[in-house]
Nucleic acid binder design. Structure first.
Lengths: 243, 243, 243, 243
DNA sequence: GTGGTCTAGACCACG
DNA sequence: GTGGTCTAGACCACA
């Protein structure tokens, strides 16, 4: 082999299209994902615009563009006057169907999620503190009662995975996990999930926590991989092949 | 625990600053990283501007902004006329020292890399084709002879890891791996690496390939985690604590 | 002597290198000179980009190249939003030392200035209107109080000479005077100027105005020549010989 | 008066249109002017293309563009083979009539010339060496015999003024004088010049040389100003007012 | 309405 | 056919 091969295949990656998201678009997606994932629960009140635009590092006008868009789509509603503010809608609009591109590349999305979650499993096993795991136990218990109500189950599931990410103490992994869960929600929320499947999945959650408590990173990673493979099999049966 | 807790810690992630990288910035970083990693070897000729801007999906002006910046910093030089083009400098400028932010968050960088590489190990074990692994064998052999020459070793190492990423057939993971390797290069290129360390690391490379050939994802992930932990220990001893 | 001598010495001029300054370069130099000369005072606001590029007869991108360069060098700073604009820095960066070429050819620069200023003296004597000379009187008075503060004196001096150029009603001479003063500023701004020298020079300013008022072109030219010779003597003592 | 008047009239100069000439255009004008002024005499052979493009600092293709244009307009003709080369046409095409812009701004052109020539007079008086003035004496003698043949007179006149410029030893002034003479030629070559006018003008040439020999700069400048005023009066009577 | 970014396409200078 | 420069116009983010 030659160390100076002039045209490595990875050039395709180096020269792949560059795309820049505008501040408006990213804000819209951030808030929208948080709402769809239930991180911002129905009825919750968003921070005041003046505070929010500071935290997001954008101007108020740009923030308002995003808030307006989310209000128009029914995710938010604004209340003026005393006690007013911007609130997450109590009755959220249905999750929109997966975009054409997402459908075309669902396997990519799963691969990215796999990568993120394996890292989370490994690092959580190394770093999680007991008080960070306790709420996850509660979520597992709660999910056991929700296997017949997929939307509710799914919301708890999201919190479980993001809670695990937080146990790594790595903000970037939390952000990546959030994004990955958002993509999955877009893919799976309109798919029927039999109770048995969910029970099985939740059993994996429990075993995962157990391994993490035992600081057994290898086992945690193994269970996580298995857990995710479950979702992939469901999708593989229902969605078109890789794009 | 309440399912509607209004202020989860993950809100910090949702409301984290939005920073949209411009097309120019991303192009600059892409090409710059590829050069520093040796993916674009010294003396190599880039595609013509008119082709490159098409592949990158940007206008020629934007591309030229990036090329101009890289030429000024000494990474590229342009030649006009017949047989001309834009070439990677034969004598590249020294890798710039890690930025203050990178130093402050080196552990974050390692966490991200861990995540990416574990996913790669797992997926490569599932999907790699023999003809994709053969070049990696050769790289391992070559690296054995380069343990005394860190820059050369490192370049082969980069190609090994990116080659592995390519074996997953997931462009996003290739891109993520490239970016992660770039961040590591910024961190470690100015650090002394004893031959014994490199020999040990390369032995892990060999075992990794063996597991992947055997489709043993669990073992591959385990070895990869161990492999990366090696680098982290070196850095943990030399760099300031987490930022 | 033959009228068809094939190789006159002036051929060196005819065949001297053609160097076309780009629109960007000329814009940079124009604005930079105006700032360094104080024609654009610290804190002053430039016309809006969209207007400026029209006046300069160039595209906005080209203008912005120049503005960006001047902002990076600290001469300008941009403010966005309502009431925004591009402003001359309040605390300007120090005048950069004369370039190697300028130093090597300072005598050339003085010759050009001599030529420009003699023409200005002659034409101002022929054409200046009283209301154009009045401000120059005031400048002379002001300069008398500034002989201990060279930077301030020099700024008034620049305005005096350019004001005189304007009294010729010849835009090309105004431009030439501005350019010549810019070259002189680069040469002399870092040189000590005793108060006596400045007093003497300012006395010449006064006599110059008097001659011009009297429409005595010959005397005006004579005084101007003497005035400029003063600077040259100072430079001749401090700078290396002709390049 | 205020030292910080925000909007000086000189801003019009700072913000005046920027124009960049291409290398081709400047080459064309340089060679064209040299030919029209007789600096490159009819029948003279230009340096070889390979040498010329080096001296002009341009590529051969750009040079050829200019040469081709001048050949098409009849100013040059190329001869191939042994003893070949590019030659100035023996029977030059008539000087083209002044362009609309030149006509509109003839007074500006005169002002610039005045400026250049006054500086030349002053500096020549200070620096001219006898051997540089001798050829100018011969030109004056020759011109006395050419007052009936304006084209021939004019060619000698041009050489006189450019020769004087060379006596200043300032390349920039030689270039400026050449350019100014070129502009004047475009203006005046189609105007009738009575012998008496030329005799008077040539007498001024002689007195000018005398003053310069005597190192009397003031007188030289005075005579030069007077000399140029002669041309201006002629033009003022024949051309439209200032543009 | 301000500065900041990007685009599509033209023409120039080069070898 | 290469890199180098410039243009006209669009849209974005800001206050």
């Amino acid at each position: 082999m030659s160390l100076s091969t002039p045209d490595l295949p990875s050039m395709d990656t180096v020269f792949a299209p560059v795309r820049s998201q505008t501040a408006f678009e990213e804000t819209l997606e951030r808030l929208g994902t948080a709402i769809k994932l239930g991180l911002l629960a129905p009825g919750a009140r968003l921070p005041a615009e003046r505070e929010l635009c500071t935290r997001l590092g954008i101007s108020r006008s740009t923030l308002r563009q995003a808030l307006t868009a989310l209000a128009q789509s029914g995710h938010l509603h604004a209340v003026r006057g005393r006690g007013g503010g911007t609130f997450v809608a109590e009755r959220p609009p249905p999750v929109d169907p997966p975009s054409r591109e997402l459908l075309a590349s669902w396997r990519e999305a799963c691969d990215v999620r796999l990568s993120v979650e394996l890292g989370i499993a490994a690092l959580a096993a190394a770093r999680a503190r007991p008080e960070e795991l306790a709420p996850l136990d509660e979520l597992v218990v709660a999910m056991d009662d929700l296997v017949e109500d997929f939307p509710a189950y799914r919301q708890a599931d999201v919190r479980f995975h993001i809670g695990l990410a937080e146990a790594t103490h790595s903000p970037r992994l939390v952000a990546a996990a959030t994004e990955a869960q958002g993509a999955m929600t877009d893919l799976i929320s309109n798919i029927a999930h039999p109770a048995e499947i969910l029970e099985h999945a939740n059993a994996q959650h429990a075993r995962l926590l157990s391994c993490i408590r035992g600081r057994d990173a290898d086992a945690a990673v193994r269970i996580m991989a298995e857990h995710l493979r479950g979702t992939e099999h469901v999708l593989a049966g229902l969605l078109p092949g890789d794009g």
